[in-house]
């Protein structure tokens, strides 16, 4: 095994669970998340001489992993056939509205947990778990757009470049993702 001054394989490997956690928050599948973590660690091993040590090792690894995740999204754009299913054609957001555009169903029913002040909402671990579960239920296209925009906080133009969709359809996609998550939380909390 090649000598790596200061940092051993075990050191790198000790970051694997945190890296997998980071990846899983951005990807549908645990297996994909772990594959990208493995790629990240292999890249790290081969490029350890470029690690200057100004940043923490974890930060450096997360930087590599983030690139791999964005590359994975770009790859999905080039291989749409590999993404399990296309967008369902029915406009599921619209059953919430009457034809003239006012509410048909109550969008706020059962969401009292979201009425708390921001700090309380952030500390509500049950809410976090439920939201993560609901994100997993989004279709791949909605999930990708939502993750890039909200979790990664990418600029909308950057998201369009990565996913290959227009600004207009990104707006519609994000609208559907956000309202879909809200509806999913309502269902999870017993308000179908």
């Amino acid at each position: 095994m090649a000598e790596i001054p200061g940092i051993s394989l075990a050191d790198l490997l000790s970051h694997a669970p945190a890296l997998a956690h980071y990846a899983r928050a951005r990807l549908h599948e645990q297996a994909t998340a772990e594959d990208l973590v493995q790629e990240t660690l292999v890249t790290a091993v081969t490029q350890l001489q470029t690690f200057q040590g100004q940043s923490a090792l974890r930060t450096w690894l997360i930087g590599i992993l983030r690139h791999k995740i964005l590359d994975h999204f770009r790859w999905q754009k080039r291989h749409p056939g590999d993404v399990p299913q296309r967008e369902p054609s029915d406009d599921s957001g619209d059953r919430w509205f009457l034809p003239e555009g006012s509410w048909r169903l109550d969008p706020t029913a059962g969401l009292h947990a979201l009425d708390a002040d921001p700090q309380q909402v952030l500390e509500n671990t049950q809410l976090r778990t439920d939201l993560a579960r609901c994100m997993d239920k989004l279709s791949p296209a909605l999930h990708r757009a939502f993750v890039l925009r909200e979790v990664e906080q990418c600029d909308p133009d950057e998201i369009c470049a990565i996913t290959g969709i227009s600004r207009e359809s990104l707006a519609v996609t994000l609208y559907r993702a956000r309202t879909g998550l809200r509806a999913c939380l309502q269902a999870a909390w017993g308000t179908p």
């Binding site: 979201l114 921001p118 909402v121 809410l127 956000r178």
Partner: peptide
């Protein structure tokens, strides 16, 4: 407000 809270939660 609910949509904003969901966004906030995803960002942190």
């Amino acid at each position: 407000r609910h949509l904003q809270r969901i966004s906030l939660l995803a960002r942190q």
